[in-house]
Design a protein around this nucleic acid. Structure first.
Length: 533
RNA sequence: GGGCCUGUAGCUCAGUCAGGUAGAGCAUCCGGCUUUUAACCGGACGGUCGCGGGUUCGAACCCCGUCAGGCCCGCCA
């Protein structure tokens, strides 16, 4: 059974109504790793919905979290905002300086700045969660009840965290972080509490009170999380392995949740995505591929497939080069399969059956729309990569694919070609996929040519030299060079590849040659002939 | 110190929860296809299931131990 269906099955045992939750702190640029959080949740929600459950899918934006430090992409001016909540400070401009103007005129803040492009990317891949903003929730009193319980039971909560995570909390630890009069959470110590006020002394020695019903502060993460479960009614949440470790925040949250009179949600721990050869993704180190960037390269369903086809506890190594081609191939191959027909065979082993079923569900979950078939255009990713390289004009690509004035390519297909061109011209496009006409003489391969191949090569060179340089006539020359000697056209193609591309196989040759200067090709062939003699 | 995840064919991984003849895709090789979209079709090759014990009629799967890689118990998806 597919992992998403397994979770859905577990959920059905808990009840009929479900809220699947995900959450991210928008402290910097989003990357592919964040996509796993959201897509994992989205796929669970879809699977649960498909199994007949009533499901709401939400995305909690942790914009109440403080700015931890001045990240490399920020100007030093941000130092004064350290400790301030990211939903309450200006967004950085392109030069990293705070954009006070937009902040004051429209309220455009740091969190929105990073969140909004991500939401756009989500919409493109068919994910439209209900957005819950944490900061606004605090301010409107959603957290009040849990915050009161937490503060009334601070000893119990402290005991749970110390026992479960086996770490020691300071004596003055308190389950509420008050905001000081400057709006900072940093260096503020709690000195007393009577509901609804938490009294504090800040780093500068100023004293004050924070009203927890008005969100003048926040719950520390380990309490904030279970509080959200409780007031939102979260029944299922996928989270990264960092939260899922033994003694991690899920473990403590589970017990704290009981204090709030709420059963912790069904967990699903997922592994991280790393960039091949570069380690884990990290916004601050710049070691990232953003969702938007990835979406500029591949069709969105392939990005979904990346997540759908691998089990959550498998680490994914991602790169925007060959892995992308292989992933696309895999996706396209599978989306053409007739799964129902395959499953109809009663002699299938259990293993084989599971394999087919998982592939079927992975394809289903990769579709952008909730219903309907996957957006299966007739051209493969690999093929499009060839066409885009050999034909500089889009119109020639469409002609090659059999489109005429009467049948124009779909917008989807046009979009895919545009993405392909972006990818090809990007640093990510792998050498392996590049069509290159070699200029050196491939000596080792030429030595392997047999007599009849050499004859064909001579004939081919002769015919091409007289040939009109167009797609059709080049194609004819290649075939004719073999046929005139009573040989298979395949021989002519083989020797062409050896001489021109340095390999025994290759893509359709004529369209590529058409794009290149005739004299270069003839000269290269002549150099090869000279070598043989 | 405590814990989690991973280890199965050259590569990527299913299969482990519910023990029952070791599985896919890719790659490679061979054949087919008389103009080849790195295509397609057919076939072959390929594994002491990290290692050692135990339970069992039977173990990749359950139990104990062990090795290796990654990670967590401040923050991070």
């Amino acid at each position: 059974m597919h992992w998403a269906d397994v979770v859905a099955l577990n959920l059905s045992r808990r009840g009929n109504k479900h809220i699947v939750s995900t959450g991210i702190t928008p402290s910097g640029e989003f990357h592919i790793g964040h996509l796993r959080e959201i897509l994992t949740g989205d796929m669970i929600a879809r699977a649960a919905s498909d199994s007949g459950l009533d499901v709401d899918f939400i995305f909690i934006v942790d914009d109440a979290d403080p700015l931890r430090r001045v990240y490399p992409f920020l100007d030093e001016e941000y130092a004064k905002f350290i400790g301030h909540q990211i939903g309450d400070i200006p967004a950085p401009k392109a030069d990293g300086k705070p954009d006070y103007q937009s902040y004051e005129s429209t309220g455009w803040n740091y969190a929105d700045h990073f969140l909004n492009p991500f939401l756009d990317a989500l919409a493109t891949i068919g994910v439209r969660p209900r957005i819950v903003k944490n900061l606004a929730s605090y301010k409107s009193g959603k957290f009040t009840e849990c915050a009161k319980i937490a503060c009334d039971n601070s000893d119990k909560i402290k005991e749970i965290i110390e026992r479960v995570s086996s770490r020691e909390l300071p004596d003055n630890w308190f389950p509420w972080s008050p905001l000081n009069s400057n709006g900072s959470l940093e260096g503020v110590s709690v000195t007393g509490y009577e509901f609804p006020l938490v009294h504090y002394t800040d780093a500068d020695g100023n004293t004050g009170s924070s009203d927890l019903t008005k969100g003048e502060g926040k719950l520390p993460w380990r309490i904030d999380w279970p509080a959200k479960w409780s007031w939102i009614g979260v029944t299922c949440e996928a989270f990264g392995k960092d939260h899922g470790a033994s003694g991690g925040s899920y473990d403590t949250g589970k017990e704290i949740s009981q204090l709030f009179g709420y059963d912790a949600p069904q967990p699903l721990v997922y592994e991280w995505i790393s960039l091949k050869g570069k380690g884990a993704m990290s916004s601050s180190s710049g070691n990232t591929i953003g969702p938007m960037e990835a979406l500029q390269l591949v069709p969105p369903e392939i990005l979904r497939y990346l997540i759908a086809q691998s089990k959550p506890n498998k680490a994914i190594e991602f790169d925007a080069g060959m892995s992308l081609v292989n992933l696309a191939d895999d996706y396209e191959r599978n989306s053409l399969r007739d799964f129902d027909n395959e499953l109809a065979d009663e002699n299938l082993s259990r293993r084989r059956r599971v394999q087919i079923e998982d592939a079927q569900v992975a394809i289903k979950l990769s579709a952008i729309g909730k219903t309907g078939k996957s957006n299966n255009s007739t051209v493969s990713f690999r093929h499009l990569a060839l066409l885009a390289q050999t034909k500089s004009d889009d119109q020639l690509v469409w002609e090659s694919l059999g489109f005429t004035n009467d049948s124009q390519p779909s917008d989807l297909l046009r979009d895919r070609l545009e993405k392909m061109r972006t990818w090809i011209s990007s640093e990510h496009f792998p050498d392996e996929m590049k069509i290159v006409i070699i200029e050196h003489v491939p000596e080792d391969l030429l030595n392997e040519l047999v007599e009849e191949e050499i004859q064909v090569l001579n004939k081919l060179t002769e015919l091409l030299d007289q040939c009109e340089w167009s797609n059709e006539s080049i194609s004819n020359c290649i075939v004719e060079s073999a046929k005139s000697l009573d040989k298979s056209p395949r021989l002519a193609y083989n020797v062409s590849y050896v001489c021109l591309m340095g390999s025994k196989k290759g893509p359709r040759l004529a369209p590529i040659l058409t794009e290149l200067p005739k004299s270069n090709i003839i000269n290269q062939l002549r150099r090869c002939i000279e070598f043989i003699q």
